[in-house]
Design a binder for these strands. Structure first.
Lengths: 228, 228
DNA sequence: GGGATGTATCAAAAAAACATCAAAAAAAAC
DNA sequence: GTTTTTTTTGATGTTTTTTTGATACATCCC
C-alpha cells in the first residue's frame, strides 16, 4: 500500500511540481500532476489517487474551494502547501476538510513523514474475505478453512491449490494452469501431482470423496470448483 | 462526538496544563490531566480519552517512547506539543505513530483546528486492552502477561512476538511477516530464530509445549495464535 | 468385448520443515 | 568492571509434507 501509492500534485508552478515529483518518486511514490483547481478535481475523479498535495495559490480558483469541492464526494487525504502562515489560513484549510497544512518553505523530510501519517489515517479497516461453497468456508484473510464450521488443516500446497480454484471459482482450470501456478512452470508435465493432491484435498473437504460435489474433474481438461 | 469529547493533556508543567484546560473547556471539551509518561499510559487505559495532547519534554520518559507504548494497543489520536522544531524530531514523532506535531509556542486556534482534524481521522472502535485466550491473559497497556493468573516473565523479543500474534489473533502470520515486524527487514531469512523463540515462548505459556494449544504452527507458512 | 487413455487411491521413501537442547557471544543490569 | 540476562549460533532428533511408485477403476473408441 505504502509502496507505489499514487499521489496527485496540484501546483501551478512547473518547477515546484518537478521538484516534488523527483523527491517523491525517489521514495517510491507514483506521481500525477495538475496545474489548476479545475484540473485537480478532474484528475482526482479520473485517477483516484491515494493522496493529494495541494498548493493554496492556484490561478483559477481558491485552494479552499478545491478542498471543499473534493470533500463533497471523496475522503482522499489532502495535504495543503501554502506560503501563508497565518492561523486563520490554517484553521480555514483544516476546517474545510484538509488533513494537514504545511507552510512554505517546508522540509522534504517533514512532508514525507506527514504523507505517511496521512496514509495511515486513510487506511480502511480491512474487511474479511470469506469464500463459501456449500459446507465449505475459506477465510482468505485468516487462511482458515472450515467444513460445517469444523476447522480443516491443509498443507501449504493443498491450500495454494484450493485458493487458486477459489480465485477462478466456476471456471475450469487446465492441468497446465494449475501446475504452473502452484508448483511452477518447470512442473507443467507432472500431472500425477494433481491426482495425488486433488485426492488429498477431496479427502479433507468433500463429504464423499468418491462423489465430489465441490471440486469437479473435467476429464482431459482440468478441474473446476463449483460455485454455489 | 465533537461536543464533550474527552481529551487527555500530558504535560509536566501545571501552568501549561491549566492554560490548555481552560482554553479547551471553553470549547466544550472534557479535560483530564497527566504529568508523567507513565501516568499518561495509565490514564489512557483507564479513561479511554478520545484524544491525547502530549508534551514531548516529560521528566520520567521520552515522549517518543510514550507514543510507541500507546501505539502498541490503541489508535487514539495523539497530538504532540514540543519546543523542538527540527525536522528529525517531527519525523521521529510522526513515524512513531503521532498524528500531528505542533511546535511551541503555538496558536490556540491552530491547535483547536488540528484537534478537530484529528477527531475526523479517529476511527471509532472498541479496542481490547486485555487479550485473553484460554489460560493466557495479556494486558497490552501494562505489558503484563499472566497464565492462570500467575505472572509470566517474557524477554523483550518474546513479548514483541506475542504482541504481534495478538494483534493478528486468528490469522496466520508468515515467517517473513514475523521476522520483518519483530527483528527487522534484514532478518527475513533467519527462520531459525522463529524456531528458537517460539519454543521459548511455548515453554512459558503453553501447558504442554509439545502439544501447543495457543500458538499453532502452520508448516511451510508461519504461525497463528488461536482466538478463544 | 478389449485395449488405450485418463483418473483415483494407497502407501513407501525422500525431502523439507520443525522442535529442542545447549553453548557461545552480546547486551543489559548492577 | 563484574555478574546476570538475553540473543545468537550450532548440533541433533522428530514430525510433517512432498515426491515417487504401484495398483485399481472408469470411460471412451474401435
Amino acid at each position: 500500500m505504502a509502496e507505489g501509492a499514487q499521489i496527485l500534485i496540484v501546483d501551478d508552478e512547473p518547477q515546484i511540481r518537478r521538484f516534488l515529483r523527483i523527491s517523491l518518486e525517489a521514495n517510491g511514490y507514483c506521481i500525477h500532476e495538475a496545474a489548476t483547481g479545475h484540473d485537480a478535481i478532474l484528475k482526482t475523479a479520473q485517477l483516484r489517487p491515494d493522496l493529494i498535495i495541494l498548493d493554496m495559490g492556484l490561478p483559477d480558483s481558491d485552494g479552499l474551494d478545491v478542498v471543499r469541492r473534493l470533500r463533497e464526494w471523496t475522503k482522499t487525504p489532502v495535504i495543503i502547501l501554502s506560503v501563508r502562515d497565518s492561523d486563520q489560513d490554517k484553521v480555514d484549510a483544516l476546517d474545510a476538510g484538509a488533513d494537514d497544512y504545511l507552510t512554505k518553505p517546508f522540509s522534504m523530510d517533514e512532508l514525507m513523514a506527514r504523507i505517511r501519517t496521512a496514509q495511515r489515517h486513510a487506511q480502511p479497516q480491512q474487511e474479511e474475505i470469506v469464500f463459501t461453497s456449500g459446507r465449505l468456508k475459506v477465510d482468505l484473510s485468516r487462511r482458515v478453512v472450515t467444513i460445517n464450521g469444523e476447522p480443516v488443516k491443509l498443507t501449504r500446497t493443498e491450500y495454494a491449490l484450493l485458493r487458486l480454484l477459489i480465485q477462478h471459482a466456476g471456471k475450469v482450470l487446465t492441468h497446465q494452469q494449475i501446475l504452473r501456478e502452484v508448483w511452477g512452470p518447470e512442473y507443467i508435465h507432472e500431472t500425477h501431482y494433481l491426482r495425488v493432491y486433488f485426492a488429498q484435498l477431496r479427502q479433507k473437504i468433500e463429504e464423499n470423496p468418491a462423489l465430489p460435489e465441490i471440486i469437479i474433474t473435467e476429464p482431459g481438461v482440468g478441474y473446476r470448483l463449483v460455485r454455489v
